[in-house]
């Protein structure tokens, strides 16, 4: 049951882009075309889940036992940066086709605040389940990370679809490009507001 709450909440109710405002830069940057949006979503999904797993263990077994929580930010960002590099190298060797699909997005992901945001959220925030709340255990943290990135992908693909249509329309000069895109996201976020309260 708790897993279902986590999944629904992370994908719809607290959608990472449309209600938590994380990972906006790549969201606006690569959502011009549906195909790039899908590629980026795949890469983000992969990295967020892996990074959450590693930072969760790092926090649990290294930082907390030694009272080094104050190094959290610095340690997490380094782990994420190193991880992204490693994923890039490993993918290149093992699966060149996957690398071709995701490769160009990987370097961009280090500074995607969604990754660091999820990693920090998982180790600092209590989650609510019905009438009680507690920190996530490892399994729940992974599910949360996965569901969050699915939510990211969902928002990204929806938005890219809208943007492809927008590109074909006439818009006033001052609205061209980002302004109209932001207003579109606003309306999309308004629609997602309708999900609030279901868990």
């Amino acid at each position: 049951m708790e897993y279902i709450i986590i999944i629904v909440s992370a994908i719809f109710v607290n959608n990472i882009v449309l209600s938590q405002f994380l990972g906006i830069c790549p969201f606006l940057g690569v959502s011009n075309k549906l195909s790039t949006a899908t590629g980026m979503s795949g890469a983000v999904c992969f990295v967020i889940t892996l990074a959450t797993l590693v930072t969760y263990l790092l926090n649990q077994y290294l930082l907390v036992p030694f009272g080094l929580e104050f190094l959290q930010t610095i340690a997490f960002i380094l782990v994420i940066a190193a991880l992204v590099q490693m994923v890039e190298i490993v993918l290149k060797k093992i699966s060149p086709s996957l690398y071709q699909a995701l490769g160009i997005f990987l370097p961009l992901i280090t500074t995607n605040c969604a990754v660091l945001g999820v990693a920090i959220t998982v180790v600092t925030k209590e989650f609510t389940f019905g009438a009680e709340s507690h920190m996530l255990n490892l399994g729940q943290a992974i599910v949360y990370a996965l569901a969050t990135s699915v939510g990211y992908g969902l928002a990204m693909v929806l938005f890219a679809g809208l943007r492809e249509h927008l590109a074909l329309n006439e818009v006033p000069k001052s609205f061209k490009g980002l302004p109209i895109a932001l207003i579109t996201v606003g309306i999309l976020a308004l629609a997602f507001l309708g999900f609030s309260g279901i868990v």
């Binding site: 000069k173 001052s174 932001l182 606003g186 309306i187």
Partner: peptide
């Protein structure tokens, strides 16, 4: 209320950007 919540952020930034451009 919508302006304090998430959608308002996107809308306000979008329209301010329009004014800035103009």
């Amino acid at each position: 209320l919508a302006f304090v919540m998430a959608p308002g952020a996107f809308l306000v930034l979008g329209y301010l950007m329009v004014l800035f451009n103009k």
